[in-house]
Design a protein around this nucleic acid. Structure first.
Length: 117
DNA sequence: AGCATGACGCCTA
DNA sequence: ATAGGCGCCATGC
């Protein structure tokens, strides 16, 4: 057990909380776990994630709404199809409609104040 | 110990 | 809006 394992555990916890039909970014996750400069590490943590991990890693995209993890899902088009199947909207540019499908893990605690849980 | 690489992100031209 | 360069953090050789 090392610090990196803890980091990865936090990453998985955050990613697992991403609602269906929503997406988030590496930087956002990194910031949510207290390491806003470790966006690359978030990607690495997801990279070692097995397909049957139950972690919706396909909902994690780049800061610009661009799909970057296509190689792990059989291509960006595959990942895009997965997201679209969940209700995520895409722009003509080929990017995710961040305006409506962006999930902020950091924003979640505020929802608790409203009793959303 | 030093160099190169990577599911990223921000700054500058 | 697009393209290129630099920085961060950890890993591998």
């Amino acid at each position: 057990m090392t610090n990196e394992d803890d980091f990865r555990a936090l990453v998985y916890a955050v990613v697992a909380r991403i609602p269906e039909g929503k997406v988030t970014t590496y930087g956002l996750i990194a910031e949510a776990i207290g390491q806003p400069r470790a966006a690359r590490e978030v990607g690495r943590a997801l990279a070692v994630l097995p397909d049957d991990s139950g972690i919706p890693a396909h909902r994690v995209i780049g800061r610009d709404g661009k799909l970057v993890g296509g190689w792990a899902f059989g291509g960006e088009n595959v990942q895009r199809a997965m997201l679209e199947a969940e209700g995520v909207g895409f722009l003509p540019d080929g990017r995710v409609d961040m305006a409506h499908h962006l999930y902020d893990p950091i924003d979640r605690p505020q929802l608790r104040l409203f009793g959303e849980d």
